[in-house]
Simulated assay, not measured.
Amino acid sequence: MKYAFNGLLFAQRQTGVMRYAREILLVIDQICKKNEFVLVVPEYADKVPELQNIKVERYGNIKGNLWEQISFPRYLKAHNLTGVSFNNTCPLCALDGIIVIHDIAYKLHPEFGTSLHGRLSRIYHRLIFSRVSKSKIKIVTVTQFSKYQLIDTYRIDPNRITVIGNAWQHIKQIKGNSNILLRNDLKDKGYYFTLGSMSIMKNTKWVYEVAKRNPDSLFVLAGAKSKGTGNSFEQLNNVIALGFVSDVEVKELLKHCRAFIYPSIYDGFGIPPLEALSQGAEVICSNAACLPEVYGNTVRYIDPYKYDINVEDKMKEAVCDANFALGKYSWRKSGEEFYKLLAENDSRNKE
């Protein structure tokens, strides 16, 4: 056993970054030898995946990022292991393993985090990115877009960066539930659906502005913080703000929507439209950042800063079969590529 996986994110709220780590680890767990790797998590972690071959070690009670900077490197040193971090950050005193940097929004878009927590997080991430760029640590990212942003911003040798993408097959494990449709009197293909967030990056403002201009179309906004987003959705008669919905309910909403709307301003990958396509949904998607790379001609694009569109006219645009996007990405493929990278990196370190 040469590598230890940084499991801090399994003690945090669920995000796309956690999804990536979980799915990659589940694949590696299927193909690696018993105890070939260890996943180190804080003792208080409550979202740890069930693994058969990767050893899970609970270690340290320090909270938050201090666990990553103190407890995790202490474990690495005590067991003579190399760290692998999935969560955009890593120990500053152990820059000899592998880090996954999904995007560099903290560097390029400071306007996305203006709260005290956002500013502190931006400082922390920018420190990590700067130190990583000057080290020899191997970097994994999720799109060619993110790779070249890293190269252009930090002048990193392209040979240090490997692209291993996200995927969508996890949604197949979720069972749908039509109660969400019945409770809200939603008809099949009768509404436009989006996942809301307080984040400026996710751009729910676009949905608000377009809903105002399309009063005859129904828009459904879901998400833990979709209510009270500052855009007064409750004042629009053609918007239903559901608040928090479960993964089961999201899957059902995707299956039956007229189209899934994803107006994001910036993304390193953007998993939700892939999930939507997998459920047979049409997608209206931002043309920003990596999204055209991921989705090609399988979605209908919008400018996330322009609101004067007729959504029904937009739906008349022709698109390619969803399988052109879905076929490019699988967790199995990504997990195998990550496992291969671990083996190659280990071999180079022995030379």
Rank of each mutant, 00 (worst) to 15 (best):
I171N: 06
I171E: 12
K172V: 01
K172Q: 14
K172L: 12
K172W: 11
K172P: 01
Q173N: 15
Q173E: 15
Q173M: 12
I174C: 05
I174S: 04
K175P: 09
G176T: 14
N177R: 12
N177G: 14
S178H: 11
S178Q: 13
N179E: 15
N179R: 13
I180V: 15
I180E: 07
I180Q: 04
L181T: 08
L181F: 08
L181A: 08
L182I: 15
R183H: 12
N184P: 02
D185W: 06
L186I: 06
D188W: 08
K189H: 13
K189V: 10
G190A: 04
G190W: 03
Y191K: 03
Y192P: 05
Y192T: 04
F193K: 04
T194C: 10
L195S: 02
L195I: 15
G196F: 00
G196T: 08
G196A: 07
G196E: 09
S197C: 06
S197A: 13
S197W: 02
M198G: 03
M198W: 03
S199V: 05
I200L: 09
M201Y: 04
M201S: 07
M201D: 05
K202I: 09
K202E: 02
N203I: 05
N203E: 11
T204K: 05
T204P: 08
K205T: 02
W206A: 05
W206Q: 06
V207Y: 00
V207M: 02
V207R: 02
Y208C: 08
E209T: 01
E209A: 02
E209S: 02
V210R: 00
V210M: 01
